[in-house]
Simulated assay, not measured.
Amino acid sequence: MILLIADLHLEQERPDISRAFLQFLEGRARGAEALYILGDFFEVWVGDDAISPFQRSIAQALRALSDSGTPIFLMHGNRDFLLGEDFCREAGCSLLPDPSLVTFNGERVLLMHGDSLCTQDIDYMRLRRILRHPLTLWLLRHLPLAARHKLARKLRMRSRDHTPRKASHITDVHPDEVPRVMATHGVRTLIHGHTHRPAVHPLQVNGQPARRIVLGDWHHQGWALQVDENGCVLAPFPFPNQE
């Protein structure tokens, strides 16, 4: 059994989400063949050198799962693209490039966070190109911590102010970009997060049947995609009751 999740947006202000995630690690994920986290794991990440006690507790929980024998793979999202190797070493996980090719049940599958597919959102794509440029990443990691926190707050406010004003098709993936990317990588299954619109979409790639699986966000409930010998099941589950 392989599990894939995305868009938890973990932060200390949402203990219900972190509680659900810790229960997920201690229960369903224990004994899994692998756990893939496809971006926006944290609501914000300003650098491995700025890890908070809350974030360290999450790293320790991941390490416990990794030490139990379940490999963990972590991909950057648009909120936590500064996650680095120091965090991964502490958490016992491996950093995945976006996109990544994997093999599930003998089939090549493409994994992405999903934000790079939203090419109709011109403003966001321009900002993404700037922020993900190697020189920008180097500069961001070497800014004083206070400056990084200030920039992170500014970017979060920008997202919260602008995203609700955009038409839904602007913030979703471009219908032409998906088959293009899948054809480029020679796959018939794409799994991604980012859009917070969980679903399994059938489509055609080079005249062949294909599918795009969108992982759900963990705002009101948890979501996980389970892959095993019987196929794929994408399903939500309720957060545990607060005690």
Rank of each mutant, 00 (worst) to 15 (best):
A152V: 09
Q120H: 12
T184K: 14
T163F: 09
C93K: 02
V205F: 03
P209D: 09
T163G: 03
T119W: 02
V109N: 00
P236E: 03
K154F: 03
S66W: 03
D80P: 12
F42D: 02
F41M: 15
S94M: 07
R160Y: 12
L131H: 01
T189N: 08
H196Q: 10
F54M: 14
F41E: 10
N241D: 14
L25F: 08
L8K: 07
R158W: 13
F237M: 04
K154V: 00
V205P: 06
R128F: 00
Q120W: 07
L137C: 03
E26D: 12
L74F: 12
D228N: 15
L225E: 00
L10N: 05
H133T: 01
V178D: 00
G106T: 07
H174T: 06
D7A: 09
L4M: 14
G207Y: 13
K166S: 06
P240Q: 12
L135G: 04
L145C: 09
P71L: 03
S94E: 12
T171M: 15
R153K: 12
R188Y: 12
R211H: 07
Q226H: 02
F237C: 02
L95Y: 04
H185T: 06
H219Y: 08
E33N: 12
F239C: 13
P15E: 04
E177D: 09
G92A: 11
T119M: 01
V187R: 03
L145H: 08
R211E: 13
H219D: 13
